[in-house]
Design a protein around this nucleic acid. Structure first.
Lengths: 223, 223
DNA sequence: GGTCATTTTTAGACAAGTCTAAATATTTTT
DNA sequence: AAAAATATTTAGACTTGTCTAAAAATGACC
């Protein structure tokens, strides 16, 4: 129905919308897509022609409901495939993004329905991001970032905001993964780093840069 | 590494080779690829330039070892994905070809290794075709077509030669599937149709056209 | 409100893969 | 072995998505 490239543009615009931007400028989109502004202008015109987004020259673009539904569906496929790769094929969370970028474009509604059922209708992907449901609804994340915590909080790691392999490998090195238990010992005001106890045995200090990118929730809640 | 289109050409040429043709002519390839001869000439030149096949103008082409290894790898991916769709995601054997045509182009060696392991290193896909192994070896099929049988033979259905949804649905209608047991009652000389007993209870007559496209082996052997 | 810097669009070109129509080889027929 | 039929290749054009370089619009500053 839509090409790989069209789906990638729509997905990127959706992510920028979800990140809080109403109107997406050509340059911002070019940056996100790792391409040139002139290429973006061409593609935006094409997508506007297909009623997938609204475009005002020199102003930027906004997804239409149609465009949003295509983008959400692509995001749903991406996150389901990531879940499959980690849960079923034993990949680690830093290896799956590239492969899911390819798999998300496979065309078959039944394939995705069956995959969803096989995985047990998961609510979150391996990075803790919510998986859009069939009706297009994207649950608000019940998680918050570790830099919003207080001393003595008992937390569980639920996801990350930075998905780069470098960051994910850094966490793996310290044994931090989805489900890891964190007890906050102290928040250091001068550099906003956090001292904590990992899984009730290992004491660690994490920099603010790391802490900002870790999603957590309180221990008593259930994912 | 290679584009979807390049992989599809190589895979199609390999299938024609496996069907017994040494040198593949432009028109035959155009027919198989559902495209025009002029397009085939262009692509063949390109593939020859990449050392994937040998091409003599007006004569035809033959895969090189390099081209063969790419084609076999694509065929391996195709058949592993078909197995996954049927065994894991509950698809029926007439629904999987189209989806596997897309999935076979996903680029990740690790993905295929993990998928193979998850499926338990299957030897045959859901149509009974051998799955090429990692080293590139394609097992000769131990199966023969049902029209080569004799009365009183006890057989098991192992695959089909015709993969069209129409044919597969026809078989499904009579309850014939991989593993079905067939007892040959009589071979009718005038139309070469066969009377047989399906799964020890249902008597059937199958036309020669159908019988030619069903792969079987003797009951005592193990797939 | 005019000048300057920035952002965005346009114009023209390129690569991949396809097509039609015309030209050229090859094979078959006589 | 020449004529006719068939197979194959070439030439030129089209589509999708990209790029560079130049032109135009926008916004900021004084």
């Amino acid at each position: 129905m839509y090409s790989f490239t069209e789906e990638n543009y729509l997905k990127t615009i959706l992510k920028l919308h979800l990140g809080g931007t109403q109107v997406i400028s050509t340059n911002v989109l070019a940056e996100s897509m790792q391409t040139k502004a002139s290429s973006v202008t061409d593609m935006i015109k094409k997508l506007a022609g297909k009623k997938l987004l609204k475009y005002e020259p020199y102003r930027g673009c906004i997804l239409t409901n149609l465009g949003k539904s295509v983008a959400v569906s692509t995001l749903r496929k991406h996150r389901l495939w990531e879940t499959f790769l980690v849960n079923t094929l034993s990949f680690s969370w830093d290896e799956v993004h590239e492969i899911a970028e390819q798999l998300e474009h496979i065309q078959s509604d039944k394939l995705i329905r069956q995959l969803d059922a096989f995985l047990g209708f998961p609510k979150h992907d391996p990075h803790g991001d919510p998986i859009p449901q069939l009706d297009g609804k994207i649950a608000a994340s019940p998680f918050f970032t570790l830099d919003q915590t207080k001393p003595q909080n008992q937390l569980v790691v639920c996801g990350v905001l930075n998905h780069t392999p470098d960051f994910l490998k850094y966490l793996s090195k310290y044994g931090i993964e989805i489900g890891s238990k964190l007890s906050i010992l102290q928040i250091n005001a001068f550099d906003r780093s956090i001292d904590l106890l990992l899984n009730e045995k290992q004491q660690l200090n994490l920099s603010n840069e790391v802490v900002k990118n870790i999603l957590v929730q309180f221990t008593h809640q259930v994912a």
